[in-house]
Design a binder for these strands. Structure first.
Lengths: 164, 164
DNA sequence: CCATAATGCGTGCATATACACCTATCCGGG
DNA sequence: CCCGGATAGGTGTATATGCACGCATTATGG
């Protein structure tokens, strides 16, 4: 007996959660003068064993490649990262500067404070459960076939129709 | 014995999930020529017993009031909603136009397709669990005190310091 | 070797997001 | 009635997001 389809939009629910959480974290990080997205970028760059290429980092962040590219500009402008030529003349690698590492260290206690605020509100069990659920969801959705327009000859026609 | 603090940023995890889900839903909704955020707005307006005021709708969507205001512009421009004067000369109310209702009806099957894609990938149990966890998280975080700058005399000074 | 596909990035465009600051309106106390 | 606080919205600015499209470079097949 299949469940009745939910009338709750999972996407919208996640988006609402994102808005609420982002405001909590941005608020906590404000004394360190950095936003949550940018802090997350620095930490995800730092976490890699070697300076990642742009496309690689974009996949880690689940960002569109072009979104990542633009999100890095403020960090580069502020001297927190450097973007250097990669092994290939096409590729570019991103690394933290000393200022970037310092910024992560500076912001870390504020980030921890936000983590604690949320963990306290939810209770440790719920927080852990949500983390696991989302991690698992990401892993699962990563396996879905990516819509690759150029591989599907019909796609271009359909797109044209949409545009009307 | 308290758990060791997590090194996983819950905010970033939710954001990554949001990016992935939004692309799936936007992709599914593309034939109906509407984006997920805007579809969610239409549905949340439609769901209210009476045309909500802007601030009211912003709270429902967990959006900043000014964000909502701007997000409504494309919908108004395309004739899917109307923004009329509220009971108060300060307030404005949002309602769906017939075209707006038609757009919801048109997009609904595509939205359901996205819901099914995700539900199938996750399995119904996981999908339900995530929904409940997030609903519960939202309810909990709604109870956190809102940072109200104007009520805290020190806040202005701190802000000034951040700006340096 | 050369034509073609595949890969890695950037730009133009439109929407999405929220903070600081502003105006207009309403509501209470005097 | 008037004034100050509270409430409802909008604007300026900056970042965030992703699609369509284009360019350069590399890999591949003949």
């Amino acid at each position: 007996m299949p469940q009745p389809p939910s009338t709750t939009c999972l996407c919208t629910l996640v988006r609402k959660s994102d808005r609420v959480l982002n405001r909590i974290y941005d608020d906590a990080l404000r004394p360190a003068n950095i936003a949550t997205t940018q802090f997350a970028l620095l930490r995800n760059i730092q976490r890699q064993p070697s300076p990642p290429a742009l496309t690689e980092l974009a996949e880690i962040m689940r960002m569109d490649r072009t979104t990542l590219s633009r999100n890095l500009h403020p960090l580069e402008r502020d001297g927190l990262i450097t973007i250097t030529a990669g092994p290939d003349r096409r590729t570019k690698s991103v690394s933290l500067t000393p200022d970037g590492s310092a910024k992560v260290a500076e912001a870390l206690p504020f980030w921890q404070s936000a983590q604690e605020t949320v963990a306290t509100a939810l209770g440790p069990t719920n927080r852990t459960a949500i983390e696991h659920q989302l991690q698992s969801m990401l892993a699962t959705l990563d396996l879905l076939p990516k819509t690759n327009p150029r591989k599907d000859p019909d796609y271009g026609l359909r797109t044209t129709n949409y545009a009307q």
